[in-house]
Design a protein around this nucleic acid. Structure first.
Length: 576
RNA sequence: GGACGCGUAGCCUAGCUAGGAUAUGGCGCCAGCCUUCUAAGCUGGAUACCUGGGGUUCGAAUCCCCACGCGUCCGCCA
């Protein structure tokens, strides 16, 4: 990978390696020290045991040996031993001359193709009704990861696995078959056909009828609803919910899913039957009294009341997880890396599926990003209790609040223009607020946090971007051939440039560790450093020879902030 | 009963995978900064025995064990 830090690291490595190997030790990975101490640090603690010397002394000796050869390296300004670390400082002139052209080059931040195809499944909520914020982390996490992995050079396809076979799908279809015939007053109080049908389920006869539908789906038996084959009818009900309730909210949050994969397709193509046959042949598989097949997960570290993982019912039909195994095998036939974003309630199931995939000869394991649920201050969200905040309502409220803020500041803009800004600010604030936190950490939803427009928030980053855009609009005349970017020597300029230059490393780090919250903090830091530069270094009113170079730095900042915003799925605003 | 995840200032949060340099940033609080490129910004200040207790180590927020608290799961449901 080509980046300022990667080049600097290789220069330093070339200098240190001969000395270290003459000592018989190998260098640990570099660390990033506090910027006041240096740009990269070599910790000498691991050498202490082998060399039988205190780390502090080793660091000092290393620096001493380094000094003669270092003089020739134009990239290095300074080397110092402190507290067992060797800190290397970049030569600021070299850093500026190297970094700025790199950032300004077309395609900065896009890593070279990995030659790997990745499938990233996220959201996959049962299509019954609107999404609520308890699960809203899923699409935001998934979409952000997809954006990061694309920049990291993967060919990414995002997928939403649509459950069109289970009880919920059937319930929805059942409700839909009646919904049109029900009077308005009877519908009142129900969110839609699904809730209505769930309510009817209290009736034993209805329950019985639904069981029949479900069985027909599982056995792929013939059954018509209003003259349409059942599976087809269920699918259209699901599609309708997807199109009217789920996708619009996702699209509004800049979340685009490449493909929707119906669970039923793996029944139709026979792959679920293959999974069942394949597992039955395994010596690990056994049959319960009534003929249901299972695998005991105890040897794989699963403990608890029941360690049996059932992959068929007593009547031989498949279960949800069985179909999910077929889905995963299909993914592995077409993609190199399989990534899933799942709620913490799926931890056990993910483990069971991983074990089964291994039993079926699949060598690679799915990589899973788990997230904890978002709860309300008063407890868990519950559709039944009415203690629930819907994702689209959250977006709507955020946009309304943003509109108040925009109008407070920019009343001179047309209403239409203010609305456009409010939409971008509100939606972005919601996304950022969720992505900035490590996924496995549980969150309590509070309106005042979710709609915060200050500090560590999306508008903070958007604002910095808008400031950069504004300067560039006014300084269009700037930038001449004779400009010397090496005139950028102010500490605020140097610190900013180094951070901007770290972007490719950041993209790599995030995609390898699948931790998108790191990108949020990188973006926040970039915006912060830009604001400090903005304070310290006037651009438009700068001295003649500084104006051009500073405009170049503003442009570079704008490029990086734009990439950050894009990676996080936030909207870049030219003014706000 | 068991398994997994989390526990950092009044509140939220980074750092934990590969143990080391004064624990990151934000909200709120206090004091400042708009006749100069958008104050959704900037500067300074106060606030943390990193849940508790052991252990490993020259050194632990980080690794190990125990306890406590919160969350999630342990369906021939999805």
């Amino acid at each position: 990978m080509d980046s300022l830090f990667s080049s600097f690291k290789s220069v330093v490595t070339d200098l240190c390696s001969p000395i270290l190997s003459s000592w018989g030790v190998e260098a640990p990975p570099f660390e990033r020290p506090d910027p006041t101490m240096g740009d990269i640090a070599l910790p000498c603690f691991t050498f202490a045991k082998i060399l039988r010397k205190p780390p502090k002394l080793i660091a000092e000796e290393l620096v001493e040996k380094l000094l003669p050869t270092m003089a020739a390296a134009k990239e290095i300004a300074d080397v110092q031993a402190t507290n067992g670390y060797v800190n290397f400082c970049m030569d600021p002139d070299w850093a500026v001359r190297t970094a700025i052209p790199m950032i300004l080059e077309e395609g900065y931040g896009q890593l070279p193709p990995q030659g790997m195809k990745m499938v990233l499944e996220h959201t996959s909520a049962n299509p019954t009704d609107k999404l609520h914020v308890g699960r809203a982390r899923n699409p935001i996490l998934g979409d952000t990861l997809a954006r990061i992995c694309m920049r990291a050079g993967y060919e990414v396809e995002t997928q939403y696995y649509v459950d069109d076979m289970g009880r919920q799908a059937v319930t929805l279809a059942y409700g839909r078959s009646l919904w049109g015939k029900v009077g308005e007053e009877e519908k009142a109080g129900f969110l839609g056909p699904y809730q209505y049908a769930s309510h009817l389920m209290e009736n034993e006869e209805t329950k019985e009828e639904l069981r029949g539908w479900l069985h027909a789906l599982e056995t792929q038996a013939k059954l018509d609803v209003n003259g349409t084959p059942l599976q087809e009818y269920v699918d259209s009900a699901c599609t309708d919910i997807m199109e009217t309730k789920i996708t619009p909210a996702l699209e509004r949050a800049n979340i685009h899913i490449h493909s929707f994969i119906n669970e039923s397709r793996f029944m139709k193509d026979g792959s679920v039957a293959d999974v069942i046959e394949g597992l039955k042949e395994r010596p690990e598989a056994s049959q319960d009294d009534n003929g249901a097949w299972f695998i005991d997960m105890e040897p794989y570290g699963v403990k608890g009341r029941n360690t049996k993982f059932f992959f068929t019912r007593g009547d031989g039909t498949s279960l949800y997880a069985t179909r999910d195994i077929a889905y995963h095998l299909w993914k592995y036939r077409k993609w190199d890396r399989v990534v899933n974003v799942l709620g913490e309630d799926h931890r056990l199931e993910a483990k069971q599926i991983a074990v089964c995939l291994e039993l079926l000869g699949q060598t690679k394991k799915p990589e899973v990003v788990f997230y904890s649920f978002v709860s309300l201050p008063e407890g868990k969200m519950s559709t039944r209790k009415g203690t629930v905040v819907y994702f689209d309502d959250l977006l709507e409220e955020a946009v309304a609040r943003a509109m108040d803020e925009v109008s407070k500041r920019r009343l001179e803009l047309s209403e239409k223009e203010r609305e456009r800004i409010a939409e971008a600010v509100g939606v972005s604030a919601v996304r950022y607020n969720i992505i900035r936190v490590q996924p496995e950490k549980k969150m309590t939803f509070r309106w005042e946090d979710a709609l915060s427009f200050e500090g560590d928030s999306a508008p903070f980053i958007q604002y910095s971007y808008a400031r950069a855009a504004s300067i560039l609009r006014k300084g269009e005349d700037g930038g001449r051939d004779g400009d010397d970017i090496a005139l950028l020597i102010h500490p605020s300029e140097i610190t900013l440039i180094k951070h901007l230059a770290y972007l490719p490393n950041m993209v790599e780090e995030c995609s390898e560790s699948m931790r998108p919250h790191l990108m949020a903090s990188y973006a926040h830091h970039a915006a912060m450093l830009f604001n400090q530069f903005y304070r310290d270094c006037p651009v438009l009113n700068a001295d003649e020879e500084l104006r051009g170079p500073r405009l170049a730095l503003v442009y570079a900042s704008k490029v990086v902030l734009a990439i950050c915003l894009d990676l996080l799925g936030l909207t870049a605003l030219e003014e706000m």
